[in-house]
Nucleic acid binder design. Sequence first.
DNA 1: ATTTAATTGTGACAATTATCACTATTAAGC
DNA 2: GCTTAATAGTGATAATTGTCACAATTAAAT
Lengths: 206, 206
Amino acid sequence: MAKKIPEKVVSRLTFYHSIVSEFIEKNEQNITSSQLAHRLNIDDSQVRKDFNLLNKVGRCRVGYCPKDLKETIENTLGFSNKRNAFIVGAGHLGLALAKYDKFDNYGLNILALFDTDPLKIDMQINDKKIFHITKLLDLASELNVDIAILTVPRQPAQDVADFLIESGIKYIWNFTPCVLSAPKYIKVWNENLMASFLQFACKEID
Amino acid sequence: MAKKIPEKVVSRLTFYHSIVSEFIEKNEQNITSSQLAHRLNIDDSQVRKDFNLLNKVGRCRVGYCPKDLKETIENTLGFSNKRNAFIVGAGHLGLALAKYDKFDNYGLNILALFDTDPLKIDMQINDKKIFHITKLLDLASELNVDIAILTVPRQPAQDVADFLIESGIKYIWNFTPCVLSAPKYIKVWNENLMASFLQFACKEID
DNA sequence: ATTTAATTGTGACAATTATCACTATTAAGC
DNA sequence: GCTTAATAGTGATAATTGTCACAATTAAAT
Ligand SMILES: NC(=O)c1ccc[n+]([C@@H]2O[C@H](COP(=O)([O-])OP(=O)(O)OC[C@H]3O[C@@H](n4cnc5c(N)ncnc54)[C@H](O)[C@@H]3O)[C@@H](O)[C@H]2O)c1
Ligand SMILES: NC(=O)c1ccc[n+]([C@@H]2O[C@H](COP(=O)([O-])OP(=O)(O)OC[C@H]3O[C@@H](n4cnc5c(N)ncnc54)[C@H](O)[C@@H]3O)[C@@H](O)[C@H]2O)c1
């Protein structure tokens, strides 16, 4: 990827992608910056600046071509840049994520789940098997997996993370409320649902 | 709430809350800005500025009092400010959220679920019943619910959202990939897991 | 008591992100 | 063809957010 896309722009690109896909489904030939801006409650110049970043030009009085935009967004965000991942913690949330079949559209291939609960081992979810966590090290190197989606309870989260790092995992998508300690070369991404809710809940006080 | 807390600060406060809670569990009497900063990979002055916003003063060469901090963060974020919510769409994700019992610690009371699938109606999840969506309007006003957690498939998402708005719902926590259209007075919060993943995945290109 | 070193608090500055205001372009209507 | 109005493109500006540098404070060591 030649250019660095700011984080906020990445986030907006996924929203544009969703809206643009709708337009394509409805067979619309054009989409304007203000249509997009209106749906996202942002300024229309923001939308145009974002597209400029992707070297997309629109046509005055017409707008942009949805198909073209969609393709460019997908390339920019690397939807075809397949990444292998494991889910660690086959509980309520881990299973819900495993059952979700859209992740691979976005380049995320979930290959297996891991747990310690003997009742869960060897179960099959959506073509994905649940293994005992002791198998993780071997399977990670065998299957070339460097992403872990961490959905274990809070208490063991740090220990499990340490184990993942020893096993060669480089990216941890952390759904636990635990703030993980990890070396600098490990990328941890905290999916903090509660932070998300609280930011949302605070909005009432306008 | 007297002061407006910026969104980014709200997010960090939840992380501080998590770390501070760990310190309390370990019976630590003090926590410093650099300890917190190190865990979150941020600048320590950032931490101190955040606490200044909460009117928290630390002690030089000592740090802050974890218990005091925890309480202040909880008050600031309104953990005791109980909010009632419904989950709309009792599928994989909706059920996982319903089974999660920590939401009420943060002030979010999930009272019931709604779906259209006859097989699911009247099931009981964690003391929460699944109702047919046609019951939503009455129950929302009866139980004083103005938050909906939207976990239906993408296709019906906009129609369901329109229905929720007609039913008096004011806040929609949207887990679907659909970018919802809604009047200005409705607060929509998009929990875009894919955007989150992609921001994370992009980090490899450093 | 004095010194030392760790830590807070904060102003100045830097970077990032978003908005505004305006020009240029062009499709559509007359 | 000329005019009009919608829309893209963009520099200037504003707002937000984060970093740096350093003075002030104070617990602990001597
Ligand atoms: N369920 C939700 O909606 C939700 C929402 C927000 C955050 N979370 C967080 O996500 C995490 C998982 O939540 P959940 O509701 O799925 O919990 P859960 O208890 O249903 O699942 C946890 C799973 O992890 C497994 N596990 C425990 N220790 C393990 C270990 N050492 N190695 C491997 N697997 C282990 C358990 O056997 C269980 O299957 C929690 O940290 C929770 O706080 C969940
Ligand atoms: N499962 C995940 O991990 C995950 C991750 C990211 C995003 N999402 C999104 O969350 C949403 C739900 O995902 P899921 O995996 O739980 O899907 P799911 O198909 O398991 O659940 C959807 C539920 O909605 C119900 N439903 C359908 N139409 C409805 C209507 N009109 N009114 C009320 N209920 C209706 C269905 O009966 C079903 O129970 C989807 O939009 C999905 O894209 C899911």
